Amino acid sequence: MNDQTSTVLRTEHTGLTVASINGVLDFWTEVLGFQLVYRKELGGGHAMEQVVGVSGAYLRNALLEGPDGYRVELIEYDSPEDRVILKQRPCDVGSAHLTFAVTDLRAMLNRMAPYGWTATGEPQTAPSGTIMVYTRGPDGHTIELMQHPE
C-alpha cells in the first residue's frame, strides 16, 4: 500500500554529534556566523533512548541558526561510554556534508584553521566560476565551502 497522506512540511535542522559543545560553539558562532537559539540538557531515560536508538543515552544539545535561517543542532553525548569519533571519507556510505556559500573562500579557510578545520584538497573552480572545496573538522564532520561568482 502506498500511503500519500504524509508529506514533508519543511526542513527543521541538521544534527551533528560533537565531542564537546563548548569546544565547537565559538567556531559555529564566531567563524560561521550562526546564532545560538538555545542550549538544553536532555537527560537519559527510556524516552531519550527510544528517540535516538542508543541504550543509556544521556546528552545535551545546542540549536544554532545560520544567516539564512538554516538550523544546525550540535549534540554532545555523556553516555554511553563506548562512543567513538568517526572520520569517514566522503566516498564512504553514510558519510554526509553540509555546504555553505561564502563571500571569500580562502579567507574562510583562514578563519577556520585555528579551530582545527582544514581543506581536504586545493580549492577548484568550476566552469561556472564557482570555487569550491571540502573541509574537515576535528570531530570528523565535512563542510563544503562554495564561493559563487559575483
Rank of each mutant, 00 (worst) to 15 (best):
N2L: 14
D3C: 13
D3M: 15
D3I: 14
Q4M: 15
T5Q: 15
T7M: 13
T7A: 15
V8H: 13
L9Q: 15
T11Q: 14
H13N: 15
T17L: 12
V18I: 15
V18S: 04
I21K: 03
N22V: 12
F27T: 02
T29A: 03
E30R: 07
L32I: 05
G33S: 06
G33D: 07
Q35L: 04
Q35R: 13
Y38E: 12
K40V: 06
L42V: 04
G43C: 09
G43V: 06
M48W: 06
E49A: 12
E49F: 05
V51R: 09
G56W: 09
G56N: 10
A57T: 05
L59D: 01
L59M: 13
L59E: 04
A62H: 03
E65P: 03
E65D: 08
G66S: 14
G66C: 11
D68N: 13
D68Y: 08
Y70K: 08
Y70P: 00
R71Q: 15
E73Y: 07
E73H: 07
I75S: 03
E76G: 02
D78S: 12
E81D: 09
E81V: 06
D82L: 03
R83Q: 13
R83V: 10
V84K: 13
I85Y: 07
K87S: 14
D92E: 14
V93R: 07
S95E: 03
H97A: 04
H97V: 02
T99N: 05
F100A: 01
A101W: 01
V102F: 01
V102N: 01
T103G: 10
D104K: 05
L105E: 02
R106K: 12
A107T: 13
M108T: 03
L109C: 04
L109T: 00
L109W: 02
N110W: 02
R111C: 04
M112D: 02
P114I: 05
Y115H: 14
Y115P: 01
Y115G: 00
G116A: 11
W117I: 02
W117P: 00
W117V: 03
A119C: 06
A119N: 04
T120P: 00
E122S: 08
Q124T: 11
T125Q: 11
A126V: 03
T130K: 07
T130G: 03
I131D: 02
M132Y: 08
M132H: 06
M132P: 00
Y134K: 08
T135E: 00
T135R: 01
R136W: 10
D139I: 10
G140R: 01
T142I: 15
I143W: 02
I143V: 12
E144V: 06
L145D: 01
M146D: 05
Q147S: 11
H148I: 06
H148D: 09
H148S: 08
H148M: 11
